[in-house]
C-alpha cells in the first residue's frame, strides 16, 4: 500500500480558517470560531486519506478549503504544486475539473427542477466537453458506471431511493474524471444496507481511474476499510496522522485511543474494557490555551495547559501532537 515513489498531489500547509462571531448591530467580530487551526498534511497520488473526528471538529471545513469552496484565513493548499488560492481564472476552471466533491446528502445538492440526466451532464456541459447526443451517451455511461440504469436520466431526483440519489451524486462528481475527490461523509446519510454498495463503488472507481481521495468520516471502521492513511482531528487541529494499519497497531495520542475504544464490538457477549471519554467537546470559539484535548485528557500534565503541542514525527510516517509519551497498543478488529 505504501507508494512513496509517487508525488504529492495535495499538500496542505499551516491551513487556518477562522469564522468571525459577530456581536451587536454594527459589531466587529470580537471572537472567532477556530474551525481549522494550523493543519498540515499531504496526500500522494492514488492514496486515500481518511479524516476522522467528532462532529464539529472541522473535518468538513478542511474538505471545503482544499477545494477552495471556502476561502482560507491563512496557510496554503497546493494542488499539483500550485497554490490553489492564487489561481487565475483559467487555472481555476482547470482545477475545478480535476478536483471534485461528493456530498454527504447528495439530494440536497441537486437542483430539484432538473432531471437526473441534466444533473449528471451539467459538469460536462459547463466545461464544454460534450453536447447533444454525445452528452446523452456520456451521461448514460456515467450512470452505468455507478450501477444505475441509463433510463433513470429522465427521472427527477425526488423519485429516487436514497442509495440511487447518492449514486447520481457520485456520477455527477466523477463526470469530469477528477484526479482528486473529497468525499464528505458520503455514506452517513445512507441505510446500512446500501452503505457497502457505495463504499465498494468508491473503491472500484479509485482502482479504475487512479483517483485520490480525501475521505471524511466520523466512523473509523469505514475509514480503516478504505483509507491508506488516517488523520485524526480534534477541535480544528490534527492530533495524529499515520498509515491506517500502523494506527490500528499503536496510537500515540489519547484521543485516538478514545475514538477506537468507542467503536462497538461485533460480538455482544465479548466485553472490552472501555475507556469512556468524559465531558464534552469545548466550544471552538476562542479555545483553551495549550493542548485542546487537555480538559478531557486523563494523562494531561502541566505543560499541556501552557503550550500547544506541535505535530512531531514519533516514528517514521507516524505524526503525533502530544507531549505525553502515550502508547496505546493492541489491534482493534
Amino acid at each position: 500500500m505504501i507508494q512513496n515513489d509517487r508525488e504529492n498531489l495535495v499538500v496542505v500547509r499551516n491551513l487556518q480558517k477562522l469564522f468571525p462571531v459577530k456581536a451587536g448591530f454594527f459589531g466587529k467580530a470580537r471572537s472567532f470560531v477556530h474551525a481549522v487551526d494550523d493543519v498540515s498534511f499531504s496526500i500522494k497520488k492514488g492514496q486515500t486519506m481518511g479524516l476522522v473526528g467528532e462532529s464539529g471538529c472541522g473535518k468538513t471545513t478542511i474538505g471545503r478549503l482544499v477545494l477552495r469552496l471556502l476561502e482560507k484565513t491563512s496557510g496554503e493548499v497546493e494542488f499539483k504544486g500550485k497554490n490553489i488560492f492564487n489561481l487565475n481564472k483559467l487555472e481555476q476552471k482547470q482545477f475545478r475539473r480535476e478536483a471534485q466533491l461528493i456530498f454527504q446528502d447528495a439530494f440536497s445538492s441537486f437542483d430539484l427542477r432538473k432531471c437526473v440526466g441534466d444533473i449528471v451532464g451539467e459538469p460536462l456541459k459547463v466545461h464544454g466537453l460534450a453536447s447533444g447526443s454525445e452528452l446523452t451517451d456520456r451521461v448514460a455511461d456515467l450512470l452505468k458506471t455507478v450501477g444505475l440504469k441509463p433510463e433513470l436520466m429522465r427521472e427527477f431526483p425526488h423519485t429516487l431511493s436514497s442509495g440511487q440519489k447518492q449514486c447520481v451524486g457520485m456520477a455527477r462528481s466523477i463526470a469530469l474524471n477528477p484526479e482528486f475527490v473529497v468525499a464528505d461523509e458520503p455514506i452517513s446519510a445512507l441505510d446500512v444496507s446500501v452503505r457497502a454498495q457505495v463504499l465498494n463503488l468508491l473503491k472500484d472507481l479509485q482502482e479504475e481511474k487512479d483517483m485520490t481521495y480525501l475521505f471524511i468520516s466520523h466512523d473509523i471502521r469505514v475509514v480503516r476499510w478504505l483509507a491508506t492513511h488516517i488523520a485524526v482531528m480534534y477541535l480544528g487541529k490534527l492530533v495524529e496522522y499515520a498509515e491506517t494499519e500502523e494506527l490500528f497497531i499503536q496510537r500515540h495520542h489519547p484521543y485516538t485511543e478514545a475514538l477506537l475504544n468507542a467503536v462497538p464490538v461485533e460480538d455482544p457477549f465479548q466485553r472490552r474494557e472501555r475507556k469512556i471519554l468524559l465531558g464534552e467537546v469545548p466550544s471552538p470559539v476562542d479555545p483553551v490555551p495549550g493542548c485542546r484535548f487537555q480538559p478531557r485528557c486523563e494523562y494531561a500534565v502541566d505543560r499541556c495547559r501552557l503550550e500547544t503541542p506541535p505535530l512531531v514525527e514519533k516514528s517514521p510516517g507516524h505524526w503525533v501532537a502530544c507531549f505525553v509519551d502515550f502508547h496505546g497498543a493492541g489491534d482493534f478488529s
Binding site: 456530498f103 445538492s109 437542483d111
Partner: peptide
C-alpha cells in the same frame, strides 16, 4: 449545497 455543488463543478 446546491450552490456549493454548482461552484464545485466550476
Amino acid at each position: 449545497a446546491m450552490v456549493e455543488s454548482a461552484r464545485a463543478i466550476g
